[in-house]
Write a protein that binds this DNA or RNA. Structure first.
Lengths: 228, 228
DNA sequence: CGCGGAATTGATTTGCGTCAACACACGTGG
DNA sequence: CCACGTGTGTTGACGCAAATCAATTCCGCG
């Protein structure tokens, strides 16, 4: 357990300080924050926290992917957000309540940094760059969650998939190629689809020049995708 | 136009200072914020701002209801949030970008306060109670938007309606009565339903002891509603 | 090579959007 | 006072999108 839970070393401090959340912090706030971080490695499928538990900490993801989701009374699950390397999550509870409002689970082997909320609240009190970073992150998450609501209500499965592909497409015309960083069932969940529906959406996009082989997706013509 | 757009008078200052956003501000920050407010009255259906416009200000609602929504390329609309008296909106752009990301429209005659974002950014820089209020509001909005995503993905129309009724039910057992503060088409939109679907959901809830007459909704047994 | 999880495909069902017709309330003007 | 128009809500018929269930197939990996 000792090597699974330790203070941030040089490598981890460097990774963390490059994240969107920490990039704009003042040097002193950054140092104090990094000093307070606890690094943990977790295997795939491990639970990070559960809905209803007291929220003592929020997290930054160093590597791997994490699923935030809630379960209904009859056991069905709905993903709220998929976090990747550099993302922070549960930061909405720093000033938003003292209980986790959803479950967090490692989608694969992950390495993450844990920050005590109370410590960060005190840091924010003293250093406005910390407040600004929190506000920017909250705003960003709020806007993308709003996008998510709108997508769900306005777009069909093929449209959502096309949308997803376009947002992580390097070029904005001609052909392109994308490699999914995670398995398709995870992508399905983040688009609010059953895995079967994602599969069907991909096959319906074949007529628009999209080919799928494993995790690699070839787009014949980016412009054509935008028309969906 | 002069009586439509003026500085906050005593009554308006009092209303504003009771909102969740301003309640916890330091006296000096509150005073400066109220001094900077511009009060505007708008008729039903008036547009407050449009997606894509430069975001110079955010708003607090004094009376009436406001619809935040986005439109798809084929003209269909999806509501993101319905704001009521005391709510603030577009605050996610203080640190979240310089362009409005959705449309805001008065759902009825409204009175609202306008705050310049740059002024508030400067205020937040100097007074940590302002930052805290912004963070608390952003967190709150983020959490309720997450709830919205989960509801859409996990619950059927009657479940969402039951959920809505329960959240604004004074008592948590026995019979109860609720009066909708706005028209049903607005409620439909905020639940992500077509008006017809809301109507059907209500009539399917009749067998659970829910009766609707105009805007007044009688609930026979709150406990029974929770089982939906 | 063979095993197990992931992904695909097909058949079926369900929930809800859409369109259309109709009921109802309200205010206006004849 | 009533006829009328408009905006709002309800009801029915229909179709489509996607969830669900079940059966393979594919692929990665020991």
């Amino acid at each position: 357990m000792l090597d699974r839970n330790h203070r941030a070393n040089h490598r981890e401090r460097s990774l963390l300080s490059k994240t969107g959340f920490m990039r704009a912090l003042s040097p002193s706030a950054l140092a104090r924050l990094l000093d307070s971080a606890h690094i943990t490695a977790l295997p795939a499928r491990a639970t990070i926290f559960r809905e209803g538990e007291p929220a003592m900490a929020f997290y930054a993801l160093l590597s791997g992917y994490v699923r935030l989701y809630r379960v209904s009374r009859d056991g069905r699950q709905a993903d709220i957000r998929i976090c990747g390397p550099g993302d922070i999550f549960a930061e909405c509870l720093i000033y938003g309540g003292d209980i986790y409002r959803f479950n967090a689970q490692a989608a694969e082997n992950v390495s993450l940094a844990r920050f005590d909320m109370q410590d960060v609240r005190e840091l924010a009190e003293q250093d406005p760059t910390v407040s600004k970073a929190i506000m920017a992150t909250l705003s960003d998450h709020l806007l993308s969650t709003m996008d998510c609501v709108v997508n769900d209500r306005l777009h069909t499965a093929p449209q959502r998939v096309a949308d997803y592909l376009l947002t992580r497409c390097p070029s904005d015309n001609g052909p392109a190629s994308i490699r999914l960083p995670y398995q398709k069932s995870l992508l399905a969940g983040m688009l609010g689809l059953a895995p079967e529906a994602l599969s069907r959406a991909f096959s319906s996009l074949r007529r628009t020049g999209v080919t799928v082989r494993g995790r690699v997706i070839q787009i014949g013509d980016v412009e054509a995708l935008k028309e969906i």
